[in-house]
Computed example of a mutant assay.
Amino acid sequence: MQPESKLAPAGAFSDDERDAVYRAIFSRRDVRSQFLPDPIDEALVQRLLVAAHHAPSVGFMQPWNFIVIRDAGVKARVQAAFARANDEATEMFPEEKRALYSSLKLQGITDAPINLCITCDRTRGGKVVLGRTHNRDMDLYSTVCAVQNLWLAARAEGVGVGWVSIFREEELRGILGLPDHVVPVAYLCLGHVSELYTQPELQAKGWRDRLPLEGLVFQDGWGATP
């Protein structure tokens, strides 16, 4: 009896499969104001979490945890923490930018049926982790891969995702009861959407344009163009 192979064929996807992957990438949006009130089916939530859990991680440490938040009281406390930080953020921008900044809706914490905090356990895998021996932050980078996996899967499922980053970390830690060795990497808002912007919302509203790719690609070293 032949031993079971641990390898599978590696080839390009079919044209339709490939196009679907690129469509998810190019049409993914940071959703803030288009959430519908419809609940997200639990089986769908689990599919998204499974997709996130299958992200690549250095040393296969899988440093993430997922805090699923549905409770209105918890959302209200997070919303209040955001509001305090957002007031501070407004004053950090040049005066000519403040009116536009204040007009932007930068979160959907109470609008979205589900909030999700993806964390990084910095002790996962022990003191010495393969691939992390010389760069301790590889666990944080791995956790961000889980965020992106979930985001693309959500796009394919018709679920909008918004990343809220305007918090004082200690406030978010206190609300969610995070231990000292756990870092909140992404606070996400999830909900069904019926429409999305055709380009990133901040671009559509005049905050910033996408940079041209040709100015970002170097050859064999910094600053050397192909």
Score class of each variant (00 low, 15 high):
Met1Gly: 10
Glu4Gln: 14
Leu7Ala: 15
Pro9Glu: 05
Ala10Leu: 08
Ser14Glu: 14
Asp15Phe: 01
Arg18Ala: 15
Arg23Met: 03
Ile25Glu: 06
Arg28Phe: 03
Arg29Met: 03
Arg29Asp: 00
Asp30Gln: 12
Val31Lys: 01
Ser33Trp: 10
Gln34Phe: 07
Pro37Ala: 06
Asp38Thr: 09
Pro39Ser: 01
Pro39Thr: 03
Pro39Ile: 02
Asp41Tyr: 02
Asp41His: 05
Asp41Ile: 03
Leu44Arg: 10
Arg47Gly: 12
Leu49Cys: 08
Leu49Phe: 07
Val50Ser: 13
Ala51His: 11
Pro56Ser: 09
Pro56Trp: 07
Val58Thr: 15
Val58Ala: 15
Asn65Thr: 07
Val68Glu: 13
Val68Tyr: 13
Ala72Leu: 14
Ala76Glu: 12
Arg77Asn: 05
Ala80Trp: 02
Ala83Asn: 10
Ala83Arg: 08
Ala85His: 01
Ala89Leu: 08
Ala89Trp: 04
Pro94Ser: 08
Pro94Lys: 05
Glu95Asn: 08
Glu95Pro: 01
Lys97Arg: 15
Lys97Gly: 05
Arg98Gln: 06
Ala99Asn: 02
Leu100Lys: 14
Leu100Glu: 08
Tyr101Pro: 00
Ser103Cys: 00
Leu104Gln: 12
Lys105His: 05
Leu106Met: 00
Gln107Asn: 09
Asp111Phe: 07
Ile114Lys: 09
Asn115Met: 06
Asn115Ala: 10
Thr119Gln: 04
Asp121Cys: 11
Arg122Pro: 07
Thr123Pro: 11
Thr123Gln: 15
Gly125Tyr: 11
Gly125Met: 03
Gly125Glu: 02
Gly126Ser: 14
Val128Thr: 11
Leu130Gly: 10
Leu130Arg: 13
Leu130Met: 13
Gly131Val: 11
Gly131Thr: 11
Thr133Gln: 15
His134Arg: 09
Tyr141Asp: 14
Ser142Ala: 12
Ser142Ile: 09
Thr143Gln: 15
Val144Trp: 01
Val147Pro: 06
Gln148Arg: 13
Gln148Leu: 08
Leu150Lys: 05
Leu152Ile: 14
Ala153Thr: 12
Ala153Arg: 00
Gly158Cys: 04
Trp163Glu: 06
Ser165Phe: 00
Ser165Ala: 13
Ser165Cys: 13
Ile166Gly: 12
Phe167Gln: 07
Glu170Cys: 12
Glu171Pro: 02
Gly174Pro: 05
Leu176Met: 12
Pro179Trp: 09
His181Val: 09
Ala186Glu: 00
Ala186Ile: 00
Tyr187Ala: 12
Leu190Tyr: 09
Leu190Cys: 13
Gly191Asn: 14
Leu196Gln: 07
Tyr197Ile: 00
Gln199Arg: 14
Gln203Arg: 03
Ala204Asp: 02
Ala204Ser: 04
Lys205Arg: 14
Lys205Leu: 14
Gly206Leu: 03
Trp207Pro: 00
Arg208Tyr: 06
Asp209Phe: 04
Leu211Phe: 06
Leu211Glu: 11
Pro212Lys: 01
Pro212Glu: 13
Pro212Asp: 09
Leu213Ser: 11
Glu214Phe: 03
Glu214Pro: 02
Glu214Tyr: 06
Glu214Ile: 06
Val217Cys: 04
Phe218Thr: 06
Gly221Pro: 10
Trp222His: 15
Trp222Met: 15
Pro226Arg: 06
